[in-house]
Amino acid sequence: MHLHKYEKIWLIFGVGSLLLFLTIIGFGAFYKGLQPQSHMMTIDPENVEAYDAFKQENLGVTKVNDQKYIVNVVATAFNFDLGKNEDGTPLKEIRIPKGATVLFQVTTKDVVHGFSIAGTNVNMMVEPGYISSYETKLDKYGEFTLLCNEYCGLGHHLMSTKVEVY
């Protein structure tokens, strides 16, 4: 098969670029540990409380120390359960100090949901029977939107919460 000289140049340039992209993301994934969310832990969706992180009292923001926070969330159609405050009203906001490392752990009791904090790299599928988890630093001040970004039913667009980075 005959290839025009310029076609060879183009293929070297094109395939070379693809290899460069792959090297960059491969380096990030395997050397720097920046894998996409791929948590392997399973859970019984009808009894998520059996798992410590998803006990009612452990939901929402937990401060481990000044630099480390954990956020546990149970998703159901059409709500993110962040636990309750002292007087029993459901919490509706997540507050995290800027620069702290945050581990998000999310599961669902019913259908597939999305867990996305717009404007950040927190963007996970949440599937029944699995725990989704992602650790990151929130480096910008401001108000962010945590929303469900996988269709979960007729109230899907109402499933959201504010995230405040202070």
Binding site: L11, L18, F21, L22, P36, Q37, M40, E127
Partner: peptide, 26 residues
């Protein structure tokens, strides 16, 4: 971004995905 699938296999399929770009370059 799904749980329950090994990230190494995700990456292997990413590499294969990049292979299918080549015929479009051609």
């Amino acid at each position: 971004t799904e749980p329950g699938i090994d990230p190494t296999w995700k990456f292997i399929q990413v590499v294969l995905t990049f292979m299918v770009i080549i015929p479009s370059l051609l």
